[in-house]
Structure formats: C-alpha cells, structure tokens
Design a binder for these strands. Sequence first.
DNA 1: CTGAAAGCGCTTACAG
DNA 2: CTGAAAGCGCTTACAG
Lengths: 365, 365
Amino acid sequence: MTGVRKPNRRQSGQPTIADVARAANCSPMTVSRVINNEDSVRRDTREAVLEAIGKLNYRPNRAARSLAGGEQLRIALLFDNPSSSYLAEFLVGALEEAGRIDAQLIVQGLGDQPDDHGKDGKKLIRKLLDAGIRAFVLPPPLCDSQDVLDLITNEGGIAVAVGPGFASGTGAAVLIDDYQAAYDMTSHIIGLGHQRIGFIIGNPEQVAAARRLNGYRQAMTDAGLAIDEKLVVQGRFTYRSGMDAAERMLSAAVPPTAIFASNDDMAAATVAVAHRRHLDVPSDITVCGFDDTDLARSIWPELTTIRQPIREMTAWAVETAARLVRTKRNGTRIEAENKFMPYALVRRESDAAPSLASRKDEVRP
Amino acid sequence: MTGVRKPNRRQSGQPTIADVARAANCSPMTVSRVINNEDSVRRDTREAVLEAIGKLNYRPNRAARSLAGGEQLRIALLFDNPSSSYLAEFLVGALEEAGRIDAQLIVQGLGDQPDDHGKDGKKLIRKLLDAGIRAFVLPPPLCDSQDVLDLITNEGGIAVAVGPGFASGTGAAVLIDDYQAAYDMTSHIIGLGHQRIGFIIGNPEQVAAARRLNGYRQAMTDAGLAIDEKLVVQGRFTYRSGMDAAERMLSAAVPPTAIFASNDDMAAATVAVAHRRHLDVPSDITVCGFDDTDLARSIWPELTTIRQPIREMTAWAVETAARLVRTKRNGTRIEAENKFMPYALVRRESDAAPSLASRKDEVRP
DNA sequence: CTGAAAGCGCTTACAG
DNA sequence: CTGAAAGCGCTTACAG
C-alpha cells in the first residue's frame, strides 16, 4: 500500500505555486498567470487566486522564476560622475533596490579620461548590449547624450536616466526640478539682502546645468535685480573649474556679495578662493552650493546647499528598469515616464546677510 | 524515423553544465563538484573539467544554482565609514568582484548615529545571521571589535576584515602596513627639512590609528628628533575633530612647521584652519594626509597623502569571503589569513621645505 | 479562458 | 572517486 516516498528537498517551508493552486482550486498555470498580471484570466478565478495568495502569504521564488523564464534580470549601472560622494549614494541606493527585487547589477565605471565620455560610454554600452544586457541606468552626463540613448533604444534596450535635464522619449527618467531648486536658492540669497549675486554654471554637456542657470536668472529677474553678466561664469562642475570661476568673479571691479555655485564641488572651491583672499565666509561673502554631497559638510564653514534624494532616485531607477524590461518582453508599448523627486534647501553656515562694508559697494538699481 | 522533437527553451545560448560534462567526458555531477571546489575529485578529472570550462567559457547559472541548492551565496557588506569617497571605492571594488564570482551582495549601512556603532553593528549582524547570511565583509571600526567578530564566528559565520589593525583569528583580513606607511610619510616630511612635526591621531577605536601613530613616533625617533607631546593630538578621523586638533596645535607657543594628519579629512580640516589663520600651505606650513580619498584632490592645495588600493582590497575581501564560506561548508578547517596590499606615497602640493621665517622659531635639538 | 506536460540548469541524496 | 535519478519552483509551448 505504501507508494514510493518522494524525497523532500524543500528548504524554506515557504508555500509554492502548487500550494496556491490547491487553495484556489485551479492549476499552477493559472496562478502563474495571475502573478504575472496576464489579462487572460477570468475575474473570479483571479480573485480566488489572489485570495489564496494572501491567505498563504505566498511569495514567488525568484530563482525558479528566472530559471524557468530563461532570464536573469541584469541591469547595467554606468557611472561617470566625478564626485565620489554622489557615486557612493548612487551605488547604495541601487544596491538596496537590486537586493529587494533580486536583480543583478553590472556596475561599470567609464574610466578616468575626462573628455572622452561620449565615445567611451558608447563603446561600453555596445559591449554590454552584445553581452545581452537590456537595462541601463545612466547618470549624467551619459543620460544627456541622445547618441547614447538612441544606441540603447535601437538595440531594444531600456534606458533609465538619473538626474537628466529631460526625460528620454523611449525610457524613463528620475529627476528633481533643478530649475525650481535653483530659483528657490537664489530667492533665499536675495531674501538675506544680497543684490550682487554671482552664479557659477555647471558642465555645459548636462542639461540640468542649464536648468539651474535658468532658475537663477528668473529669480533675479522676478526680484527686480539686474544680472551682471560678468558675474555669471562658466564652470564644469569640477573643483578646479570652480576655483577659476571664483577667481574671475572676485577679481571683478565690483565683486559679488554672494556666489551661488551650481554644485558643491565648485562651491567648496569658491570658499577656498575666498579664504585665500582673506575673505571670511559668510561675513564677507555668502557661498551656496547644490547637491548636498559629503563635501558640503567636509569643509568649513559647512555649505548651505540643495539636497537631492540620490539614493531614492537610484532605487527608483533600478526598480523602473526592471519593470520596463518585463513590460517590453510582454510586448506592451512603453510610454516615456518622468518621476520628479522632492528636494530641500539645507541651510548651514555659509550664508548670511551682506555686511555693511560690502553693501556700500553695491550698485543700487 | 523522426523522434519526438524536444522543445528548446534555452534563451541565452550560454554553455551549461551538461556541455562542460560532454567536453570533459564525465558526468554533470563531476562538473558540479569541481565548480564547488569539493576535493573528492581526482586530479586529472578536475583538470579536464577546468579545461573544458575555460574552453567553453562556462559560467554557472545563478538561478539554477540557488534553486537546486536551496540557497544563494550571499555576502553581507557592512559599511560605517564616514568618508563617502572611501565608501565609493569600497563599493565599486566589491561590486566588480561580486559580479565576477556571481555572489549576491547585501549592502547595509550602519545608520548615522555616530557613537552607537558597536551596538548597532551587533544588532544588524545578528539580524543578518538570522536571515541565513554567513559571510561578512567588514570595514573599520566594525572589524576591530572583538565582540562583533566573536558573534559572527559563534554563529558559524565568516568575517573578512578590510583595513583592520590586525587579522582576526577566525577569518581573514586585508590591509596595508599602516605602521610603515606612516613611518614613510613622516620620514618624507623630515627629509624636506622639518623638525617640529605635529601628528593628529585617528579614531581610538581603530587599531590602524594606533599603528599610524607608532609609525610616526618611530620615524621621529630614528631621525633623532624629539617629539613634543603637545603636538601629538587626539582626533577621531572626522573633519570636525581635525579642525579642533589643528586649532590646538597652531595655538601652541611654538607651533609646528608641518602637520601629518592620519587621514585626509583631518588633513583637509588642518588646511582650512591654516587658511583661516592666514597661513599659506605649504609655504608657511606643510600638511599631509592619509588615504588618498577624493577629498585630497578636492581642496586647494591638493594633499600629499598615502594611497591605499581600496578597490583591490574589497575585491579580495569579497572573493575570500565566498571562498571561505564554501570551504567551511565542505567542513574544511579555516586558517586565519592576512593579505597585505601595497600602498604609495602620493606627493602633491601641500608639502614643502620649511620657510626661513618658521625655521628660526624652531627648537634645535 | 484554462490546464497537462516538459523543461530551465543546477544540486541533493543515494548507490556503487 | 564517480554517476543516474529525482527534484528545486516556476514558465514556455501546446492543446483544448
């Protein structure tokens, strides 16, 4: 009477798709369909399955899923950002999310040649596409390159941009409202009483840099303040470029009483230049940054700056990349998707009202 | 004559364990044994398998492995380092290696409460152990806590330390010779002509901090220079602690002509304090750091410092953690293992010979 | 709209 | 030291 004893190799004791099928009185196949959101399931069948899933607290086994599906969800995470504190946040956010959704992250830097990014990036992406990777998470300036985006799209890949100037037409993008953030910071500085406010522009390859510049300009205009074009200086988001820009501005016949650098590296450089010229920050000059990287708290005085939720942004990017790959595989059309995240103005010690000494130099409108 | 056509569901075209078995003229089982480093495989069999693996460029399918094995190689990567440029390097090294060996990384930060690390760390590690994770890669100061190490060992886990003061008795450690590196830097400063050289000590919880201090002391003594204990000041590896220490030293009746801060954050703070006091670096005072984080190149002047190969160190740690877990699973006894990596003194712009003005203040021995 | 069968690529549990 | 069989938990490819 005794049948062959089936060896039990189940480890976890977790319910399986078969358990759910039994509880819902259907086949495992139907459960699978419900899990994967296919719409060819009758409404009440679906509901019964969902109820069983809930009751049993069933969670699909990811390993089985990817083995059977012949897929392994691999997401390439390219980075190229000069700021390693940005990078650290970027990576941590991605790793946490990848762990959550069981995606494998392929992390690749773009080398250290500062001006070859376009080419390097395309070469690397081509290699990854050849290796069968279809999902890419791209930080700026890579995600601002239409060439790069086109390359990925043409090969059937998915690109999710983190912090671009605009969303790509074929993928998704997560960003903050750089324009509004710069507008807010500029208004904050104006609110302190400053009128001659300098601005250091970021890397011209990044659209976000232009948006920050526009925010500054509009805030100045809205406050009825004239913009002295000598005080709007091109930088490249690097420390070195910030030093050059600050030197130029502080050598002006009538120097600014405040400088808004469009990232923290350039703001830190501005503080260093000010100190070298024996100017106190903030009593002689206000300096504000953007990004709230570690550097903002690793210099003295600590920087007033704009904080982006970088971790959350990358996490969203990874999750979205995974989702879009699945969507695409199902043949569903993908709509461009933009996700705006909140930012915050973080006030620290590098800003203050202009001193009387500097005020008398000001050109009143 | 036509048999049943077997549907082919293979997607990737990647070679499987069966392909390797065919090429090596053995069973899949034997290939599996070789992959998993079991030692019950005859030498020439193993070699044939390895050759086939190499020739076919075979990579085990992760999903199949964890589905069949009921488990997945998961390595917890804990971090707690205040420096995000260190963290970025740390993560990139780990990710690259994890991709290579196909391990899943569980990345966890220890929160932001600065003084609760011991407790927090233990709690988190216990949670991870409960979740079945057996491999841990730990940076300082976590890896310097015997409590933490014991906890992991007692639960049958493996700990690999990155940059500890000493190797744990039950796991492995990868480090540089902090003592010798500090000795070299001190000798370098002495070689420039300095005699009053201050030193800022790091976090007392980290054994590496003490080693750096010892290197400094020995180099001074070997050069026949007296150490003024007023110029050996306790810091905590943070920017803030570096500022306090530098303030103290530069307020001394006879201030130093050079300061060797035992990490870059404290060195950067020292430069800021010097600037605030209108001292030029390096013409008025030499400042050197340790670690060569991004910060070293994000301030002006750029710091002369000691570079550690952090990426390589973490990569080794991940690889070793994976290897030790497998070894342990096989029941083989694990020997403590120490890996020393090379370091380099990177000379930049923050050091110079002492000026004549400062020389005349010096106490000649 | 639903299901029975076969298979994904590996490992466990035996057996020799 | 080596291998044949069965199974991990899911999905694909068919068939109705």
